[in-house]
Every structure is written in C-alpha cells, then in structure tokens.
C-alpha cells in the first residue's frame, strides 16, 4: 500500500512519505509532533521536504508507525 503513496522530494536525492503515512493514521501534525517530542514546524518542514531529519528522528518516526526507515524515507542516488 505504501508503494502507491505519493512521495515528497527532499533535497536532491531523499524522498519521504511522512505526510501520507500521517494522514493514513488520521493524525494531525500537532499530534505527531507531540508523540515524537519535536515541534510542529519540524513535522511540517519534513513533510514539505525542506528539512532532513537526523538518523535518530528518522528511527523514531519509523518506529512510531511500526515501519522500517526505508518505508518512510527513500534514498535515491543521482545518476
């Protein structure tokens, strides 16, 4: 199901599906921010692709949704 989700471009070569996953879980940005103990703006920036999370936050996000990091974040090498 996740593979059908649209992905957000993050920088040059990393994409994420955070917005889609969050909406699937029926969560607001505020709820996810509170659960992950980050600011709402951080969630917004992640979803908009303006900010790359640390590996720690990436793990926290993936663990929170019971997914692997690769399910949420996709790294694509430039060709």
């Amino acid at each position: 199901m996740l593979s059908k989700l649209s992905v957000k471009q993050r920088g040059n070569d990393v994409k994420n599906k955070l917005e889609e996953i969050r909406k699937q879980h029926g969560m607001k940005q505020e709820d996810l921010a509170a659960a992950l103990e980050v600011s709402r703006q951080t969630i917004g920036s992640l979803e908009n692709g303006r900010y790359n999370p640390s590996i720690l936050l990436a793990f926290k996000i993936a663990k929170y949704f019971n997914l692997s990091i690769e399910d949420v974040f996709i790294y694509e090498e430039e060709t």
Binding site: A33, E37, V38, S39, Q41, T42, S45, Y51, P53, S54, L56, L57
Partner: peptide, 11 residues
C-alpha cells in the same frame, strides 16, 4: 523544552 531542544530549531 521540546521547542528548545527540537533538532530543526537547534540546526
């Protein structure tokens, strides 16, 4: 405290 320690804010 969350806002203060938020990794994006720190960056």
């Amino acid at each position: 405290e969350i806002d203060l320690k938020d990794e994006r804010n720190v960056q």
